[in-house]
Amino acid sequence: MNYTWNWGIFQEPSPEGVGTYADMLLSGLSWTIATALASWVIAFTLGSVIGVLRTLPSRAANAVGTAYVELFRNVPLLVQMFLWYFVLPEILPAGLGTAVKQLPDAPFYTAVLCLGFFTASRVAEQVRAGIQSLPRGQRMAGTALGFTTAQTYRHVLLPNAYRIILPPLTSEFLNNLKNTSVALTIGLLELTARARSMQEFSFQVFEAFTAATLLYLVLNLVVVAGATLLERTVAVPGGR
């Protein structure tokens, strides 16, 4: 292999004119984090609502929840990204479509929406599984005490369901974080996109992707550590 290693490349000025290659990667990392967090807010809230819909004693609510989940989890994420970015502005009314296209940071907003809606379908399934794993008597006990359906979910079912699904939910958060890299296809300058441009400008492909790999790894390990801490904090004394 005819390759010249150059680990000093990170200190060299990037072709953007300001900052070094290291700065470029770190800027990518911050877009990755911002996209992951913003889309998780949507994924968690919407996913919880959809998951609850699938467990309500109402056929209409179940149908809405099922339709959402099956639509959003059965179309590839990349296709969904393209649909949101390239197709949606075209089918909106002309004026609105143009405004959307001219939005500053349009790739960011699109990626947040797309990832949020996609991951919500997966969160929904976990919320549903968590609720359905609780003894039937828990819902009955809440109901028998006079709780409305909303109160039974708020005070009884969800607090227990979330505790049960915390480990798979952590995996889902990590997936969502890694999926932000798909947004490079619509022009979001996140970490993977930045590593690629570093490779193209400097030809130091190994250094660029070694750095990206390590940054993703460290970021995810921080998340895992946080989740472990959270699990310990909310653990129920005496178990369930």
Partner: peptide, 15 residues
């Protein structure tokens, strides 16, 4: 709310 109920498996809220 005016009818108390006690279940076979207690059904206290574990959390």
């Amino acid at each position: 709310a005016r009818v108390g109920m006690v279940f076979q498996h207690f059904e206290l809220f574990p959390h």
